[in-house]
Design a protein around this nucleic acid. Structure first.
Lengths: 224, 224
DNA sequence: TGGCAGCTTATTGTATACAAATGGCATTCG
DNA sequence: CGAATGCCATTTGTATACAATAAGCTGCCA
């Protein structure tokens, strides 16, 4: 993707992810164009992409709004993600190369390092976690599957989820990865898929709990 | 979507589906713009959409080509479709309304009529088949799932597939629908999902067989 | 006062001109 | 003769002007 267009896309996307553009708020092409320092043309391209990825919704008269996710929407996304990622794990089990397995082990070791210290390095954990999953998706060798997973993995809230993992959850997450590695080693697709399903579903519940606390906090703030 | 943009999208899409634009051939925005009687702007919009839907691929330097599907790609698409549509059936089983069930029965009756005559009415069959599946997806009540299914259901070859169903396959297809109706009636999601999986996988193999015959015909044409 | 008609303004859609980048061809040099 | 390089043609990317459409407001009439 070309320079202006890519810049616009990344800018807008990160503004949505960070919450800078509030869920439900209207989006005007020209305003974004100024913010990104480009013309409306690449902004429009970006909006179309973001709409396809469901970061943005449009009403009947073509006006754009930042998507606002209910807990149900979120569970839906997680459910699809669990199914797709389990499928990816299953495919990967019979296709993964020695070299990919090695990289998987490397990232998992880094993950372990990130949490096996007094003060866990969460960003480091997240980064290696992302790469770990990316390798599995690549090993699954289905472009289509990868593209679909892209649509459900980096939802606004999904990103924020991991930050809310407590240490216990991070450890379990790491443990799942260990088990995935063994399943891959034994080329047991069913096992890999099962582990992955649980792995993603835990992530959802970790979020749901954090979210309800969050909501309560917000409520009490409003009350104050 | 607005007039020019929608026209461009539909035109280009149907040109791809019909084979008028040959798989693998390069696409030039200006040429399409002339063909559709619009400017490049809406054509570009359409190309982006079609690229996301994987009807079109782009090389490193942003040139567009009509997607060319290998049998493997196709099996991949069918596999994903089977998984997603089974998931839809499962969800639908616990959510479908009496009214939707009624419409399902109606379309299935029409399906039966279309093939229970000396000369089967294939277009009629296809139309009611499409609506039957659409109702299930709607009953699943997941926008995201619906959007993903859209990406794997109307691939160029998928469309041509059904035309190659022989009567026996059409009958089995209708029988699957009957069974789905019972599963829905009993709110048995697992059953519905299982039937749906088989239903879609049969479609794939029906295509694969027709395709190999097809290829042989093409080869002998070349030889002649 | 409530609601509707018509106008005004805000926002998106389309066309077009121009800029940037890419590919292909020809020429030249080793 | 082959490969590399520079130029030209083709194609895509971006900006901008203008057109179309929808929303909001104002004032009129019931």
């Amino acid at each position: 993707m070309s320079r202006a267009s890519e810049r616009a896309y990344n800018n807008i996307r990160s503004m949505i992810l960070s919450g800078e553009l509030q869920p439900g708020s209207q989006i005007r092409e020209e305003a974004l164009a100024e913010l990104c320092g480009v013309s409306r043309t690449p902004v429009r391209d970006s909006l179309r992409r973001l709409e396809a990825e469901m970061f943005i919704r449009r009403n009947d008269s073509q006006r754009s709004f930042v998507a606002d996710w209910s807990l149900d929407d979120l569970e839906d996304a997680f459910q699809l993600r669990a199914m797709l990622e389990a499928h990816a794990a299953k495919r990967a089990a019979s296709r993964i190369s020695r070299e990919q397995l090695g990289r998987l082990r490397y990232h998992n070791a880094q993950l372990k390092q990130a949490i096996d210290i007094p003060n866990p390095d969460v960003p480091k954990f997240l980064d290696h976690n992302r790469q770990f999953h990316a390798i599995i998706v690549a090993a699954a060798a289905s472009e289509r599957l990868a593209s679909m997973l892209g649509q459900v993995t980096e939802q606004p809230v999904v990103l924020r989820t991991a930050r809310q993992y407590d240490l216990e959850n991070l450890r379990r997450s790491h443990h799942d990865h260990d088990e995935l590695l063994i399943a891959f080693d034994k080329r047991d697709g069913e096992w890999a898929a099962a582990v992955m399903t649980g792995h993603i579903r835990r992530a959802f519940h970790a979020y749901a709990e954090a979210h309800s606390t969050d909501t309560e906090i917000r409520k009490s703030n409003l009350a104050a």
